[in-house]
Simulated scan of single mutants.
Amino acid sequence: MPTTFGADVRRVRQARNMTQKGLGGATGYSEAYVSRVESGSLTPSEKFAEGCDRAFGTGDLFTESLRRLRVEHPDWFAPFVELEAQASVICDYSTNLVFGGAQTREYAWALLRAGQPLDTPEQTAAKVELRLQRGKLHERGEGEESPLLWLILDEACLRRKVGGAEVMRAQLRHLATMAEYPAVTLQVLTFASGAPPASSPYTLLDFPQAIEQPQVLYSEGQGVGQVIDSPGQVKDAHTRFDRLRAEALSPGQSLAMIRSVMGEHTP
Protein backbone atom coordinates (compact mmCIF):
# COMPACT_ATOMS: atom_id res chain seq x y z
CA MET A 1 0.00 0.00 0.00
CA PRO A 2 1.40 3.46 -0.81
CA THR A 3 3.25 5.20 2.01
CA THR A 4 1.77 8.43 3.33
CA PHE A 5 3.16 11.56 4.95
CA GLY A 6 1.67 10.65 8.32
CA ALA A 7 2.87 7.04 8.21
CA ASP A 8 6.38 8.23 7.35
CA VAL A 9 6.36 10.66 10.30
CA ARG A 10 5.30 7.84 12.63
CA ARG A 11 7.94 5.48 11.27
CA VAL A 12 10.81 7.96 11.67
CA ARG A 13 9.58 9.17 15.07
CA GLN A 14 9.48 5.64 16.43
CA ALA A 15 12.91 4.90 14.98
CA ARG A 16 14.21 7.93 16.92
CA ASN A 17 12.48 6.65 20.12
CA MET A 18 10.49 9.88 20.28
CA THR A 19 6.94 10.16 21.62
CA GLN A 20 4.16 12.10 19.92
CA LYS A 21 4.34 14.58 22.77
CA GLY A 22 8.07 14.94 22.26
CA LEU A 23 7.68 15.58 18.54
CA GLY A 24 4.92 18.08 19.28
CA GLY A 25 7.23 19.96 21.61
CA ALA A 26 10.04 19.94 19.06
CA THR A 27 7.83 21.27 16.27
CA GLY A 28 5.68 23.68 18.29
CA TYR A 29 2.47 21.65 18.07
CA SER A 30 0.34 19.62 20.45
CA GLU A 31 0.44 15.86 20.92
CA ALA A 32 -3.10 15.71 19.47
CA TYR A 33 -1.93 17.53 16.33
CA VAL A 34 0.88 15.02 15.79
CA SER A 35 -1.57 12.16 16.32
CA ARG A 36 -3.96 13.50 13.68
CA VAL A 37 -1.14 14.02 11.18
CA GLU A 38 0.13 10.48 11.73
CA SER A 39 -3.35 9.00 11.34
CA GLY A 40 -3.82 10.88 8.06
CA SER A 41 -6.89 12.82 9.21
CA LEU A 42 -5.04 16.16 9.03
CA THR A 43 -2.83 17.59 6.31
CA PRO A 44 0.12 19.19 8.15
CA SER A 45 1.33 22.74 7.88
CA GLU A 46 4.62 23.67 6.21
CA LYS A 47 5.91 24.71 9.63
CA PHE A 48 5.24 21.21 11.00
CA ALA A 49 7.03 19.56 8.06
CA GLU A 50 10.03 21.82 8.54
CA GLY A 51 9.97 21.07 12.28
CA CYS A 52 10.01 17.33 11.57
CA ASP A 53 13.09 17.73 9.37
CA ARG A 54 14.87 19.65 12.15
CA ALA A 55 13.82 17.22 14.89
CA PHE A 56 14.71 14.12 12.88
CA GLY A 57 17.75 15.49 11.07
CA THR A 58 16.25 14.52 7.71
CA GLY A 59 17.30 17.54 5.65
CA ASP A 60 14.27 18.64 3.63
CA LEU A 61 12.69 15.18 3.29
CA PHE A 62 9.37 16.00 4.96
CA THR A 63 9.24 19.54 3.59
CA GLU A 64 9.54 18.20 0.03
CA SER A 65 7.08 15.38 0.75
CA LEU A 66 4.46 17.90 1.86
CA ARG A 67 5.15 20.10 -1.16
CA ARG A 68 4.53 17.15 -3.50
CA LEU A 69 1.33 16.24 -1.65
CA ARG A 70 -0.04 19.76 -2.06
CA VAL A 71 0.90 19.91 -5.73
CA GLU A 72 -0.80 16.57 -6.39
CA HIS A 73 -4.05 17.24 -4.51
CA PRO A 74 -5.97 20.28 -3.21
CA ASP A 75 -5.69 20.83 0.55
CA TRP A 76 -9.32 19.73 1.05
CA PHE A 77 -8.80 16.44 -0.83
CA ALA A 78 -5.33 15.44 0.37
CA PRO A 79 -6.51 14.14 3.79
CA PHE A 80 -8.96 11.78 2.08
CA VAL A 81 -6.33 10.44 -0.33
CA GLU A 82 -4.00 9.77 2.61
CA LEU A 83 -6.71 7.92 4.51
CA GLU A 84 -7.98 6.01 1.47
CA ALA A 85 -4.50 4.56 0.97
CA GLN A 86 -4.56 3.16 4.52
CA ALA A 87 -8.15 1.87 4.57
CA SER A 88 -9.02 -1.80 4.90
CA VAL A 89 -12.65 -1.26 3.78
CA ILE A 90 -13.99 1.38 1.36
CA CYS A 91 -17.76 1.81 0.93
CA ASP A 92 -18.85 4.31 -1.70
CA TYR A 93 -22.23 5.52 -2.90
CA SER A 94 -22.11 7.35 -6.24
CA THR A 95 -25.17 9.25 -7.44
CA ASN A 96 -24.37 10.25 -11.03
CA LEU A 97 -20.64 9.82 -11.68
CA VAL A 98 -18.51 6.70 -11.28
CA PHE A 99 -16.35 6.49 -8.13
CA GLY A 100 -12.91 8.02 -8.81
CA GLY A 101 -11.05 4.83 -7.92
CA ALA A 102 -13.02 2.91 -10.57
CA GLN A 103 -12.71 5.33 -13.50
CA THR A 104 -10.95 4.61 -16.78
CA ARG A 105 -8.37 7.00 -18.20
CA GLU A 106 -10.73 8.32 -20.89
CA TYR A 107 -13.67 8.74 -18.49
CA ALA A 108 -11.50 10.64 -15.99
CA TRP A 109 -10.10 12.82 -18.79
CA ALA A 110 -13.60 13.76 -19.96
CA LEU A 111 -14.69 14.67 -16.43
CA LEU A 112 -11.60 16.72 -15.64
CA ARG A 113 -11.73 18.61 -18.95
CA ALA A 114 -15.39 19.43 -18.38
CA GLY A 115 -14.87 20.56 -14.80
CA GLN A 116 -11.54 22.40 -15.28
CA PRO A 117 -11.53 23.62 -18.91
CA LEU A 118 -8.77 26.21 -18.33
CA ASP A 119 -6.20 23.55 -17.43
CA THR A 120 -3.58 22.79 -20.05
CA PRO A 121 -3.63 19.28 -21.55
CA GLU A 122 -0.48 18.55 -19.52
CA GLN A 123 -2.20 19.57 -16.28
CA THR A 124 -5.23 17.44 -17.10
CA ALA A 125 -3.00 14.46 -17.94
CA ALA A 126 -1.20 14.78 -14.59
CA LYS A 127 -4.51 14.82 -12.70
CA VAL A 128 -5.75 11.80 -14.65
CA GLU A 129 -2.62 9.85 -13.68
CA LEU A 130 -3.19 10.67 -10.00
CA ARG A 131 -6.77 9.45 -10.25
CA LEU A 132 -5.65 6.20 -11.90
CA GLN A 133 -3.18 5.64 -9.07
CA ARG A 134 -6.15 5.45 -6.69
CA GLY A 135 -7.64 2.71 -8.83
CA LYS A 136 -4.51 0.60 -8.48
CA LEU A 137 -5.43 -0.03 -4.83
CA HIS A 138 -8.01 -2.48 -6.17
CA GLU A 139 -5.88 -4.14 -8.85
CA ARG A 140 -3.26 -5.87 -6.73
CA GLY A 141 -1.89 -9.21 -7.80
CA GLU A 142 -1.98 -12.55 -6.04
CA GLY A 143 -0.51 -12.40 -2.54
CA GLU A 144 -1.00 -8.62 -2.26
CA GLU A 145 -3.57 -7.21 0.14
CA SER A 146 -6.30 -5.04 -1.35
CA PRO A 147 -8.89 -3.08 0.62
CA LEU A 148 -12.41 -4.45 0.48
CA LEU A 149 -14.35 -2.19 -1.88
CA TRP A 150 -18.15 -1.99 -1.84
CA LEU A 151 -19.56 0.23 -4.58
CA ILE A 152 -23.19 1.25 -4.94
CA LEU A 153 -23.82 3.06 -8.21
CA ASP A 154 -27.04 4.87 -8.96
CA GLU A 155 -28.36 3.86 -12.39
CA ALA A 156 -27.56 7.40 -13.54
CA CYS A 157 -23.85 6.55 -13.33
CA LEU A 158 -24.36 3.92 -16.03
CA ARG A 159 -26.50 6.04 -18.33
CA ARG A 160 -24.84 9.47 -18.21
CA LYS A 161 -22.81 9.55 -21.43
CA VAL A 162 -19.52 10.98 -20.14
CA GLY A 163 -17.05 11.39 -23.00
CA GLY A 164 -19.34 9.78 -25.57
CA ALA A 165 -20.54 6.28 -26.36
CA GLU A 166 -17.16 4.58 -26.78
CA VAL A 167 -15.82 6.04 -23.54
CA MET A 168 -18.91 4.85 -21.69
CA ARG A 169 -18.74 1.37 -23.18
CA ALA A 170 -15.13 1.08 -22.01
CA GLN A 171 -16.02 2.45 -18.58
CA LEU A 172 -18.85 -0.03 -18.10
CA ARG A 173 -16.62 -2.85 -19.34
CA HIS A 174 -14.07 -1.83 -16.70
CA LEU A 175 -16.77 -1.86 -14.00
CA ALA A 176 -17.84 -5.33 -15.12
CA THR A 177 -14.23 -6.49 -14.80
CA MET A 178 -13.86 -4.92 -11.36
CA ALA A 179 -17.10 -6.57 -10.21
CA GLU A 180 -15.35 -9.92 -10.57
CA TYR A 181 -12.37 -8.97 -8.37
CA PRO A 182 -12.45 -11.00 -5.11
CA ALA A 183 -12.24 -7.87 -2.94
CA VAL A 184 -14.89 -5.86 -4.84
CA THR A 185 -18.67 -5.91 -4.43
CA LEU A 186 -20.66 -3.79 -6.87
CA GLN A 187 -24.39 -3.06 -6.79
CA VAL A 188 -26.64 -0.85 -8.88
CA LEU A 189 -29.46 1.19 -7.37
CA THR A 190 -32.05 1.36 -10.13
CA PHE A 191 -34.39 4.22 -10.97
CA ALA A 192 -37.26 1.83 -10.23
CA SER A 193 -36.23 1.62 -6.57
CA GLY A 194 -37.74 5.06 -5.99
CA ALA A 195 -36.46 7.67 -3.55
CA PRO A 196 -32.93 6.70 -2.40
CA PRO A 197 -32.03 6.51 1.32
CA ALA A 198 -29.26 9.05 0.61
CA SER A 199 -29.46 11.93 -1.86
CA SER A 200 -25.75 12.85 -2.03
CA PRO A 201 -22.63 10.78 -2.81
CA TYR A 202 -20.29 9.84 0.02
CA THR A 203 -17.53 7.43 1.00
CA LEU A 204 -16.94 5.52 4.24
CA LEU A 205 -13.49 4.29 5.26
CA ASP A 206 -12.69 1.62 7.85
CA PHE A 207 -9.12 0.90 8.96
CA PRO A 208 -6.99 -1.95 10.31
CA GLN A 209 -6.88 -2.06 14.10
CA ALA A 210 -3.10 -1.65 14.00
CA ILE A 211 -3.22 2.00 12.91
CA GLU A 212 -5.81 3.04 15.56
CA GLN A 213 -7.75 5.28 13.17
CA PRO A 214 -11.50 5.65 13.75
CA GLN A 215 -13.94 5.18 10.89
CA VAL A 216 -14.45 8.29 8.77
CA LEU A 217 -16.99 9.70 6.35
CA TYR A 218 -15.93 11.69 3.31
CA SER A 219 -18.48 14.02 1.76
CA GLU A 220 -17.82 16.28 -1.22
CA GLY A 221 -19.72 19.26 -2.57
CA GLN A 222 -19.01 21.74 -5.34
CA GLY A 223 -15.25 22.24 -5.28
CA VAL A 224 -14.79 21.27 -1.63
CA GLY A 225 -14.86 18.14 0.48
CA GLN A 226 -14.45 17.20 4.11
CA VAL A 227 -13.36 14.21 6.17
CA ILE A 228 -15.74 13.68 9.10
CA ASP A 229 -14.88 11.49 12.10
CA SER A 230 -17.90 12.37 14.28
CA PRO A 231 -19.15 8.97 15.55
CA GLY A 232 -22.78 10.03 15.20
CA GLN A 233 -22.45 11.17 11.59
CA VAL A 234 -20.38 8.12 10.64
CA LYS A 235 -22.95 5.80 12.24
CA ASP A 236 -25.80 7.53 10.37
CA ALA A 237 -23.90 7.18 7.07
CA HIS A 238 -23.35 3.46 7.74
CA THR A 239 -27.06 3.02 8.43
CA ARG A 240 -27.95 4.74 5.17
CA PHE A 241 -25.41 2.60 3.32
CA ASP A 242 -27.02 -0.54 4.74
CA ARG A 243 -30.37 0.64 3.41
CA LEU A 244 -28.83 1.41 0.02
CA ARG A 245 -27.41 -2.11 -0.12
CA ALA A 246 -30.79 -3.58 0.76
CA GLU A 247 -32.61 -1.65 -2.00
CA ALA A 248 -29.98 -2.12 -4.73
CA LEU A 249 -29.85 -5.05 -7.14
CA SER A 250 -27.83 -8.08 -6.07
CA PRO A 251 -24.22 -8.18 -7.33
CA GLY A 252 -25.19 -10.74 -9.99
CA GLN A 253 -28.17 -8.72 -11.17
CA SER A 254 -26.05 -5.56 -11.12
CA LEU A 255 -23.39 -7.11 -13.32
CA ALA A 256 -26.07 -8.22 -15.78
CA MET A 257 -27.50 -4.69 -15.87
CA ILE A 258 -24.07 -3.13 -16.46
CA ARG A 259 -23.51 -5.45 -19.41
CA SER A 260 -26.97 -4.68 -20.76
CA VAL A 261 -26.53 -0.91 -20.54
CA MET A 262 -23.11 -1.27 -22.15
CA GLY A 263 -24.87 -2.41 -25.30
CA GLU A 264 -27.13 0.64 -25.23
CA HIS A 265 -24.22 3.06 -25.53
CA THR A 266 -23.95 3.15 -29.29
CA PRO A 267 -22.51 5.94 -31.44
Rank of each mutant, 00 (worst) to 15 (best):
S30T: 13
A32M: 12
A32P: 01
A32I: 13
Y33M: 03
V34D: 01
R36W: 01
R36L: 08
E38W: 00
S39H: 07
G40M: 07
S41V: 15
L42D: 04
T43N: 11
P44Y: 06
P44Q: 07
P44A: 03
E46R: 14
E46C: 02
E46V: 12
K47M: 11
K47V: 12
K47L: 12
K47Y: 11
F48H: 10
F48M: 00
F48I: 05
E50I: 11
G51N: 01
C52W: 05
C52F: 02
D53C: 02
G57Y: 00
G57R: 07
T58P: 11
G59Y: 03
G59W: 07
L61R: 15
L61E: 15
T63W: 01
S65E: 14
R67Q: 11
R68D: 12
R68Q: 13
V71T: 13
V71I: 09
E72W: 01
H73S: 13
D75R: 14
D75K: 11
D75S: 11
W76G: 08
F77L: 15
F77M: 14
P79C: 08
F80L: 14
V81F: 06
V81S: 06
L83R: 00
L83H: 01
E84I: 02
Q86P: 03
Q86L: 13
A87E: 00
A87T: 07
S88P: 05
V89A: 10
I90N: 06
C91N: 12
C91Y: 04
D92R: 04
Y93F: 15
S94L: 04
T95P: 02
N96F: 08
L97H: 07
L97S: 11
F99I: 09
G100E: 10
A102N: 11
Q103R: 13
Q103P: 13
T104Q: 08
T104N: 08
Y107P: 10
A108T: 05
L112G: 04
L112W: 02
R113A: 08
R113M: 05
A114R: 14
A114N: 15
A114K: 07
Q116I: 10
Q116W: 15
Q116K: 15
Q116R: 15
P117Q: 09
L118M: 09
L118F: 10
T120H: 04
T120F: 01
T120K: 02
P121E: 03
E122H: 05
E122S: 12
Q123E: 15
T124R: 07
A125W: 05
A126V: 06
A126C: 03
A126Y: 00
K127L: 12
K127P: 03
V128Q: 09
V128R: 06
R131C: 08
R131N: 08
L132R: 00
L132T: 04
R134W: 01
G135S: 01
G135F: 00
G135M: 02
G135P: 08
L137S: 13
E139S: 14
E139R: 15
E139F: 09
R140M: 08
E142I: 09
G143W: 08
E144L: 10
E145R: 15
E145Q: 15
P147V: 01
L149V: 03
L149S: 07
I152C: 11
L153W: 00
D154M: 00
E155M: 04
E155L: 07
A156F: 04
A156K: 02
L158S: 03
R160N: 14
K161P: 12
